[in-house]
Amino acid sequence: MLKRLLEYVGFEPGRFQARWISGSEGAKFTTTIKDMTEKIKSLGPNKKMRDDIL
C-alpha cells in the first residue's frame, strides 16, 4: 500500500521495497541486497523529498 502511494506521488518504482526473508535465508538476503543496489545505482541518487537544509 505504501509502495503504491509513494509511486503515486512520484517516487521511482524500486526505491522502496519490502521483502520477506526468513532467518535461514542468508543467500536470499545477499541476492536481495545485490539486486536492490544495482537497481538504485541505475536509478541514480534520490532527489525526491530530500531535506537539504541539514
Partner: peptide, 20 residues
C-alpha cells in the same frame, strides 16, 4: 515542524496513510 517541501510531503503522506 518546519514548513518546507520535504516536511510538507512527509506530513501529507503520513496523514493520508494514517487514515488509510
Amino acid at each position: 515542524k518546519r514548513t518546507n517541501l520535504s516536511e510538507n510531503t512527509a506530513f501529507h503522506l503520513t496523514r493520508a496513510f494514517h487514515v488509510a
